[in-house]
Simulated scan of single mutants.
Amino acid sequence: MKTKIMKTNFKFLAIILSLGLFLQSCSSDDDNTPVSSAPVITDFEYGEGSSHSTEFFAYKGSDIHLEASIYAEGVVSSITLSIHAHDLTLGDNEVDWDYENVYTDADYLVINPTFHEHVDVPTNIPSGEYHVELTVVDELGNSTEIEGHIQILDPITLSDIDIDATAKRGEDIHAEFFVTAVSGIHTISVDIHAHDLEVGVGEVEWDYEAEYQDEFHDLTEAEFHKHIDVPATAPVGEYHVLFTIEDENGNIEEYETHIDITA
């Protein structure tokens, strides 16, 4: 009788032990199941492209350099970059810029890729602050986003503008301003003309055009200071004045005004 009880207890203990080993095995299997966390984005930098600047600005007509290190336990499935602005005022011939690109290059669809791209900045967009977003998604659907802001600047700017509003024929027009051109000045040109002015006796239609290159060529900063002679025979009336500054990359900045020529 005693032997029978011992056998029964032994079988019971064996069952408990087997169950324990089974549960431990299942727990061990669970522990070995890889758990993928969301990607981590570090060293996110961006700025003016030609110099690989890390300062947060770039110029219209140039490009933006962007770079980031990505740590991802799971293989990356996509990297999305978006650049857009909020409530910038559009100037003449300007359009909104809303950039988005999904990168699925083979170099990026790996574990721990390095993101490095250059994005062209249109010439016909408003200058101002733009929002930059970089989003990384892995094959398990985990995603991470990092964001910042960049200033988009004009490649050519004019300041301290002082141009006569009136001038007498037979005298001169004073025109003065300061030019900053990041890529260097190529030319500065002036165009003065009138529309449908009546040409009186002894008067001759006046249309003035001049291009200044040698004294300003390749300078990144310059003061334009000229006196333009008005013929004594120019018809009296309103004239349209257009200054055009072109840089070495072909970017153009125009400034226009009007002047009254008097007797």
Rank of each mutant, 00 (worst) to 15 (best):
198 E>N: 10
189 S>H: 06
191 D>A: 14
244 T>F: 01
198 E>S: 13
256 E>C: 04
236 V>D: 09
232 A>E: 10
204 V>N: 13
232 A>S: 15
190 V>E: 13
204 V>S: 12
258 H>A: 10
216 F>N: 09
257 T>F: 00
249 N>K: 07
218 D>S: 15
211 E>H: 02
204 V>R: 12
196 D>V: 10
227 H>A: 07
196 D>G: 10
250 G>W: 02
207 D>H: 14
210 A>V: 13
255 Y>L: 00
223 E>S: 10
257 T>I: 04
247 D>V: 08
201 V>W: 02
240 H>M: 04
230 V>H: 06
256 E>W: 02
247 D>T: 10
193 H>Q: 14
261 I>R: 05
249 N>Y: 02
248 E>Y: 01
211 E>A: 15
251 N>T: 06
215 E>H: 05
248 E>L: 15
194 A>Q: 04
241 V>E: 07
242 L>P: 01
226 K>R: 14
256 E>N: 14
253 E>M: 10
229 D>C: 01
211 E>Q: 13
232 A>W: 04
202 G>V: 07
238 E>A: 12
260 D>G: 11
240 H>E: 10
212 Y>H: 13
237 G>N: 09
244 T>P: 01
246 E>H: 00
221 E>A: 14
228 I>W: 09
217 H>Y: 14
208 Y>G: 12
193 H>V: 08
239 Y>N: 07
235 P>A: 08
243 F>S: 09
206 W>P: 03
263 A>R: 04
235 P>D: 06
240 H>K: 11
213 Q>A: 13
245 I>S: 03
256 E>L: 05
232 A>D: 12
213 Q>P: 01
218 D>L: 09
212 Y>C: 07
260 D>H: 11
238 E>D: 14
235 P>R: 04
214 D>M: 06
258 H>K: 10
207 D>Y: 09
198 E>K: 08
257 T>R: 01
215 E>N: 13
198 E>D: 13
199 V>I: 15
236 V>I: 14
236 V>Y: 06
216 F>R: 08
250 G>T: 09
189 S>L: 05
198 E>T: 15
217 H>E: 12
230 V>E: 07
200 G>F: 00
219 L>T: 09
211 E>K: 14
229 D>P: 03
207 D>K: 11
190 V>C: 12
238 E>F: 00
219 L>S: 12
239 Y>I: 04
210 A>W: 00
242 L>F: 00
195 H>W: 00
223 E>V: 12
257 T>M: 02
220 T>F: 04
200 G>I: 02
210 A>T: 13
240 H>I: 02
208 Y>S: 10
219 L>P: 03
253 E>A: 15
221 E>T: 13
202 G>F: 04
239 Y>M: 06
260 D>P: 01
211 E>I: 13
238 E>R: 12
